[in-house]
């Protein structure tokens, strides 16, 4: 299946090339500063893990990259050029696709409709022209099969698939439509062990195909399995920013669990 990802992935991607660069990026919602001074580089063929507790600014960060909310401090560069996204469509046009944990798919719609949502194939450019239903069903089924996701019936509502499979369909869809940067928002948070494994393998496959992956999670174990670079956010700021060689799982886990705060707390609670 890695072959199919490579097949669709942008051939011009070079490993290590910076796809997205954030410099001193900040974002305020009214009087509240959700994010400040964050530096983050997403490189081709690498998984950048963004870790953090609830409210640490993870969501804000990905909303900026994926075009849902524009940033209001610092610079965001894609392929070396400064950008300011005002809609997810713009981000998608730059090859940045986001797979959200809970809103990845439309549950009541068929698998193939979900697969092509927003990038439908039509017979002509005229408004209200016919969808290429047969082609769309065939391609969706083939692509999913190649990637190891077997659906009994491509016509079944996607809500009938398991959570892990739904995530995988969303990832497969993003890759098929030429994503160069893949943002995964807590893809394993709602999944069991086995389903998480499926998603993690998939993440690794996307990385091996040369895509730049941003993996958002609050599970350091999952992050350490696939990550090349780790950023921990706390209260809107980066408290740790290291390459894989500079950090081990214990440090990550400790930082995630609260770091110095945890030490302090353990003193306070000592009996």
């Amino acid at each position: 299946m890695t072959d199919t990802i490579s097949e669709h992935a942008d051939q011009s991607l070079h490993e290590g090339e910076a796809l997205v660069e954030m410099k001193e990026v900040g974002k305020s919602y009214g009087a509240i500063r959700a994010l400040r001074g964050v530096n983050l580089t997403v490189r081709a063929g690498e998984v950048t893990c963004v870790l953090g507790d609830n409210g640490a600014g993870k969501s804000t960060l990905i909303k900026i990259i994926s075009g849902l909310h524009p940033h209001n401090e610092g610079t965001l560069k894609v392929d070396g050029r400064e950008v300011h996204f005002s809609s997810p469509r713009e981000a998608l046009d730059h090859g940045i696709a986001t797979v959200y944990q809970d809103l990845a798919v439309v549950a009541l719609m068929e698998v193939w409709r979900n697969f092509f949502l927003g990038s439908e194939m039509t017979t002509s450019g005229i408004p209200l022209s016919a969808l290429k239903v047969k082609d769309m069903k065939r391609i969706a089924d083939e692509e999913l099969r190649k990637m190891g996701i077997v659906v009994k019936d491509i016509d079944q509502p996607i809500g009938e698939l398991s959570g892990g499979q739904r995530q995988c369909v969303a990832i497969a869809r993003a890759v098929y439509f030429g994503a160069r940067v893949l943002i995964l928002d807590e893809p394993t948070a709602a999944l069991g062990v086995k389903q998480s494994g499926v998603v993690l393998k998939y993440t690794a496959a996307a990385r091996d195909a040369g895509l730049g992956v941003v993996f958002i999670t609050h599970n350091p174990h999952h992050a350490y399995l696939v990550g090349d670079h780790f950023v921990i956010l706390k209260l809107g700021q980066a408290v740790l920013d290291r390459r894989r060689s500079e950090v081990d799982l214990d440090q990550l886990t400790r930082q995630m669990a609260g770091g110095d705060e945890l030490t302090e707390l353990s003193h306070e609670l000592q009996r």
């Binding site: 959200y100 809103l103 927003g118």
Partner: peptide
Amino acid sequence: RTKVGNWIFAVGGNQASARAVG
């Protein structure tokens, strides 16, 4: 049978998800 129809189901079924895929 049209793109717009697909979008109508999508915005009704899951607006945030529809917006996220453009």
